[in-house]
Amino acid sequence: MRACEAAVRAALLGGALVVLVAGCGVVPGAPAPVPTSVVPPLASPSMAAARSGDGFDDEQRIALRLRAVSCDGLATGSGFAVDAHTLVTARHVVDDATSVQLSTYDGHDALATSVRVAAAADLAVVRTRDALPAASALAADDPEVGDDVTVVGYPLGRALDVTTGHVTAVLDDPLDENTGVVMIADATVEPGSSGSPVLDDEGHVAGVVYAKGRYGSTYFVPVSTLRSMLDDDDAFVPAPGCS
């Protein structure tokens, strides 16, 4: 059983889209929806994006599409800007990357200059050479069960998409990717959504998407964890890349 669990975890963290419904699962069935895996970065042959300067609001302008090149190929994920040259994403999107390229909401490209990853949470920080078009403030507090949330990202590596839902639960991470509690919402995500911002009803970042559960649920790292790690100079270390 232990060997089986190790094999499953290696596949999940490697970015494979695996649905575990029988045999050795990552977590057992439970009354609350349980994530089958982290939301994998999506293998993608291109990053073509529609260029448009119209019709986007502030919540959409902060979202970024990531292309992470590693020894194993190419994958896409999502992220969001926290200042003019810094974005946050999920660790598993970029930890094996040898280079990371970014695409903004209006189709412009930006080049990453450094990638740092956290050990205690599925979070990463990417610095850019080019200025990013917009950044969002972090929420002062974690959302509560029942609060409205909005997820903005690039599911399936395609066009910018916005989904809405509510926070449904707070619990310990069943995937053991985060040392603190994580939160669940009923907003829909897909492969390529990892690293998307979860926004509160004021448009502030309330969390970061990292896993997709059964029945359309979304697992995210709460903003309290993100805040504490951004304030800790030792929380992030250079990404190992691929060997």
Rank of each mutant, 00 (worst) to 15 (best):
A3D: 10
C4I: 03
A6V: 06
V8Q: 03
R9A: 09
A11E: 06
G15R: 07
V18D: 02
V19P: 03
G23D: 06
V27R: 15
G29Q: 14
P31M: 15
A32T: 09
V34S: 07
P35T: 03
V38D: 01
P41L: 02
A43V: 13
A43L: 15
P45T: 12
P45Q: 12
S46R: 13
S52W: 06
G53A: 12
D54L: 12
D54V: 09
D57R: 05
Q60N: 08
I62K: 02
I62P: 00
A75M: 09
S78H: 00
A84L: 07
T86R: 13
R91T: 01
V93W: 04
D95E: 15
D95A: 12
D95M: 14
D96K: 14
D96F: 12
A97T: 04
T98N: 12
T98F: 13
T98K: 14
V100L: 12
L102M: 07
T104R: 07
T104C: 12
Y105F: 15
H108E: 14
A112M: 10
T113A: 08
V117M: 08
A119N: 14
A120F: 03
A120P: 00
D122C: 00
T128E: 03
A131R: 10
L132P: 00
A139M: 03
A140F: 08
D142W: 07
T150E: 11
P155W: 02
L156N: 10
R158A: 11
L160Q: 02
L160H: 02
D161P: 00
D161W: 07
V162L: 13
G165N: 05
V170L: 13
L171T: 08
D173S: 04
L175P: 04
D176A: 15
D176R: 15
G180E: 09
A185S: 15
D186F: 10
T188C: 11
E190L: 15
P191Q: 14
S193Y: 01
S194C: 07
D200N: 13
D200Q: 07
D200C: 09
D200M: 08
D201R: 14
E202D: 15
G203I: 02
V205W: 06
A206G: 09
V208G: 02
K212F: 01
Y215P: 06
Y215A: 14
P222H: 08
P222L: 11
V223E: 10
S224L: 11
T225K: 06
M229Y: 09
D231H: 10
D234I: 09
V237Q: 10
P240A: 07
S243V: 09
